[in-house]
């Protein structure tokens, strides 16, 4: 189940663990076990996620962080190349910045 929106500030390691949890929920544990997920893992190349899976992943982020971040708005500023190269670290940094600016 998706977690409910929380106000607790997370550090980068906690955000990374949460992202890993979301990825596992989206693509399934059996695939995640074969992968070494790191902050440098890119969504399309390393994790082999397709666009509808990235939609699911985005929804989990939106549900979890709620109003704290404008994740869809942030993604929409990216072109296709940027989306393809998107990695976990970029998202972790973005969420971290949003938390700091609140």
């Amino acid at each position: 189940m998706d977690a409910i929106a929380t106000n607790k500030q997370l550090n980068n390691d906690e955000i990374f663990d949460l992202m890993k949890q979301f990825i596992t929920e989206v693509i399934g544990e059996e695939f995640v076990e074969e992968m070494d997920i790191t902050p440098q893992s890119s969504f399309t190349k390393d994790l082999e996620m397709d666009s509808i899976e990235i939609v699911s992943f985005s929804e989990k982020i939106k549900t979890h962080f709620g109003e704290q971040i404008d994740f869809t708005g942030w993604l929409s500023a990216m072109d296709l190349d940027q989306l393809i190269n998107l990695n976990l670290e970029m998202i972790i940094n973005y969420i971290h910045e949003c938390q700091l600016s609140r």
């Binding site: 397709d50 666009s51 509808i52 990235i54 939609v55 869809t72 708005g73 993604l75 929409s76 989306l83």
Partner: peptide, 13 residues
């Protein structure tokens, strides 16, 4: 295809 063709760039605009 699926709705992701709109989700990232077109729908937010």
């Amino acid at each position: 295809s699926n709705l992701s063709v709109y989700y990232f760039n077109i729908a937010p605009v």
